[in-house]
Amino acid sequence: MSASKTDKPGDGLVIAGRHFSSRLIVGTGKYKDYAENAAAAEAAGAEIVTVAVRRVNLTDTQAPMLVDYIDPKKFTYLPNTAGCFTGEDAVRTLRLAREAGDWSLVKLEVLGDKKTLYPNMIETLRSAELLIKEGFEVMVYCSDDPIMAKELEDMGCCAIMPLAAPIGSGLGIQNPVNIRLIIEQAKVPVLVDAGVGTASDAAIAMELGCDGVLMNTAIAEAKNPLLMAEAMKNAVIAGRQAYLAGRMGKRLYADPSSPLAGLI
């Protein structure tokens, strides 16, 4: 087969009417410097990068900025609300992001606990409602609870992004059953966000039927981030292809691959 199914135009990722051919979204935090960060995003084949909104450094206003390395015209910037613990903080942050970049596609992430960085779903639901009313297109980081995921989708979130495991933990998909339930009921894209540690984790997410994977630490903290970025790109494509191909059934006992008929 010359071209993979994922190369066909029909199999792209569509979020809020925007078409992407890559199903891997990468974060831009924790890198050695912005140059390595840009190279990793490139190696991952990502088209969307998550970014944070923070105060400018007034003591060094000539310091390099992210936009100087990762071109917002080339990559879709997905501003996040990382570090926000209330709906008000999240809305305030994203209003600023919209003014800074003129983008309405955002990643909502309202945390509930500093140690686990687990999402506060009550505040998340409240913020999502506020943001959608203000015209934002909200991709939402959430717990892997199918009921919460459904509430967020019904409210109008354009992508549901349950965690695989705590942010930055690298533990992989801890609850594949719930991720699968969320995927089956959703009519908007479902992306695993947070907790992926290595390529097989990303492949498993895609084999479950996820529409995409969002990761940061797994690439940034790899000993060779560029090589890991490429591995993640391949894993997401492989997982997607395996999902589309439809895996074989599992059996308890062996089934010979060579025919038994005609044995000498």
Partner: peptide, 9 residues
């Protein structure tokens, strides 16, 4: 408040 985009996940 003056903000900009920085790296983040």
């Amino acid at each position: 408040e003056i903000v900009h985009f920085i790296g983040g996940g």
